[in-house]
Amino acid sequence: MNPATERLSQQALGLVVAALLSLGTGTASAEKADRLKPLNIASERGGRIDVANQRTEFLGDVVMSKGSILLRAERVDLRETGDGYYQAYASGQTGKQVSFRQARDVPGEAIEGFADQIEYDTRSDAVRFIGNAVVRRTVGTAVGDEVTGAVIVYDNRTEVFTVEGGQSSPHPTGRVRVVMMPRGAAATGGAEASAPALPLKPSTELQPPRKPS
């Protein structure tokens, strides 16, 4: 298989994974109240403010929060759009990736992920995990489901995942990997589940990672 065909195959696999992965039961989604909460950022070494371009750079153990959302990185480049939304470009350092966590509307559940870089857009309410990406659904301290790949995009509003394989995937061969824990009757050994799991909707395409200019 030539490299171009292999890349297409990996991307196709990722889209199938998005259709199969489930995030629990019912119609619960990411914490809806987070969209209305203020954005807060603190850093260890301060940063640089570019007023003309509405761009601020934060350096050193940066912590960004917005309601239940918590992002930690070595560097965050924050840009404000003309209509008041924010775009955050976060990067880690050797041996320490960027981390992201957000509570779900289901009590005790959360989405958490790690990657070499993370992009967060408050307008689309989407998170892009880039490079050695791992995203999990957690239930308390336990891992419910886990996805790994080169690029993972998570839409907070619809809870749709798109996953892409490649050289920067944590898997040695660059493949996408998904672990889905049993739930409902399968988890308890009962004959029937208390409520059917609702699968995530498949995405039709992946956009290439954006890079700060």
Rank of each mutant, 00 (worst) to 15 (best):
T5H: 05
T5K: 07
E6L: 13
E6W: 03
R7N: 09
Q10A: 12
Q11P: 02
L13D: 15
L15H: 11
V16R: 07
V16K: 09
V17F: 13
L20M: 09
S22C: 07
G24P: 08
T25G: 06
G26Y: 08
G26R: 09
G26V: 08
T27C: 02
A28W: 09
S29K: 15
E31W: 14
K32S: 14
A33K: 13
A33N: 14
R35K: 12
A42N: 14
A42M: 11
E44P: 04
G46W: 03
R48F: 11
I49G: 03
A52N: 13
Q54N: 10
R55Y: 01
T56K: 11
L59V: 15
G60M: 12
V62N: 07
V62D: 08
V62S: 11
V63L: 14
M64F: 11
G67Y: 01
G67L: 01
S68W: 00
S68V: 00
L70N: 08
R72D: 01
E74Q: 13
R75N: 09
L78Q: 06
L78Y: 00
R79D: 01
G82M: 04
D83I: 06
G84P: 03
G84Q: 09
A88W: 00
A88Q: 00
A90P: 01
S91A: 13
Q93P: 01
Q93K: 15
T94Y: 04
Q97L: 13
Q97W: 04
V98I: 02
R101M: 10
Q102G: 02
A103P: 04
R104Y: 05
D105P: 02
G108N: 08
E109Q: 15
I111P: 00
E112H: 12
F114Q: 15
A115Q: 11
A115C: 10
A115E: 05
D116N: 13
D116T: 14
Q117G: 04
Y120W: 15
Y120H: 12
D121R: 00
D121M: 00
V127N: 02
R128D: 05
R128Y: 09
F129K: 06
G131W: 00
N132I: 03
A133H: 01
V135T: 10
R137N: 08
R137C: 01
T138C: 05
V139H: 06
T141G: 03
A142C: 02
E146I: 03
E146P: 04
G149S: 09
A150K: 01
V151A: 04
V153F: 04
Y154E: 05
D155F: 02
N156T: 07
R157E: 10
R157F: 01
V160Q: 15
V160I: 06
E164G: 11
E164W: 01
E164T: 12
G165C: 02
G166L: 05
Q167W: 03
Q167P: 03
T173M: 08
T173C: 01
R175V: 06
R177N: 05
M180Q: 15
M180I: 12
M180A: 12
G184H: 03
T188W: 04
E192Y: 14
E192C: 02
A197D: 07
K201Q: 14
S203Y: 05
P208D: 13
P212K: 06
P212V: 06
S213E: 12
